[in-house]
Amino acid sequence: MYSCLVTRPDLPQPLYETLRPHCALDVWQKPVIMPRDELVARIKGKHALLCTLSDRIDAHVLDAATDSLRVIATISAGFDHIDVNECRARGIKVGNTPDVLTDAVAELTIALLLATSRRLFEAEKALRNGEWMTGWNHLWMCGSSIKDSVLGFVGMGRIGMAVCQRLKSFGAKEYLYCGNSAKSSADALDAQFVSFDALLEKSDFVIISCLLNDKTRHMFDEKAFKRMKTSAILINTSRGAVVDQKALYNALNSGDIRGAGLDVMEVEPIPLDDPLLSLSNAGVSELHIKSNIEFN
């Protein structure tokens, strides 16, 4: 009988029920990321591995698996945590779930865009800190409007398209996108293919929805932030390492850009003493802060 290592105990139950008739399951039972030494020890002799984005599958893990490992499946659209080239060289098949979170991520992206542009993160903190002034101030916590703005998408794949489709009703003036090549599917959205530099210079809102690879890693560095408008807002729901987090902190702190809404960070969960969390113009998804409190 085939054997399969599963690195999470809290995946949807039908998944385990589907697998059990076909293979013996070795399931990590704690609701935390499986420690690397456990992964290395327990993958030996397994025929299959079911993992998530939190599990780094590299040559060291594959060596520990021996020649029995034939397939790796990840419960994610992204697969940058897996050394695909090493798997290919060893004849190991790799599968992902490209459409499973498209709608959810698109909705979260828009939620972050609205919360950051309308300064909801800042206003909530100000209210709790007793900074709400008496009387009425017309400009206090005045945010930015999507209407008549320029939206820039770094990557126009499934999620980029889903976000753009949903934002059409907001009445932006122009939709720009950059990537490896122009896409005919974007024509229906009146989205214009431009260079990365042109997108940075023209966009009021920059939405990152690209894959993480050697080309995109830290593509948002100090140089990129200097090209953006000082009134621009950055939204990232793709991968944290697309953004140089230190450069982002400096850009936000110095006023090179107006704000950022983040659901992904370079280190996850984000440490509670990370400088980004001290900035009022950096909106960070509560999910990552909460998981930091529960699991560390």
Rank of each mutant, 00 (worst) to 15 (best):
G261T: 11
R258M: 09
V267A: 14
N236T: 12
M228T: 05
G261D: 09
N250W: 02
V243T: 10
T216Q: 10
T237E: 10
Y249E: 11
N253I: 01
A241T: 02
V242L: 14
R258T: 04
I233W: 00
L262D: 05
S231W: 12
D256Q: 15
R227Q: 15
R227L: 15
E222V: 02
S238W: 13
K226W: 12
A224C: 11
V267D: 15
G255A: 11
L234H: 03
H218G: 04
M265S: 03
S254G: 07
A241P: 11
L252A: 04
R258E: 08
H218P: 14
D256Y: 06
G240H: 05
A247M: 11
Q245M: 12
F220M: 15
A251S: 08
G259V: 01
D244H: 07
A251H: 02
G255T: 13
R227D: 14
F220H: 07
I235W: 00
L262N: 02
G240F: 00
T216G: 07
N253H: 15
I233F: 00
V264T: 04
M219T: 12
Q245C: 08
L234M: 13
M219E: 13
S231C: 03
E222C: 13
D221H: 14
A224E: 09
V267N: 14
A247G: 14
K246M: 10
G240K: 01
I233M: 03
N236Q: 10
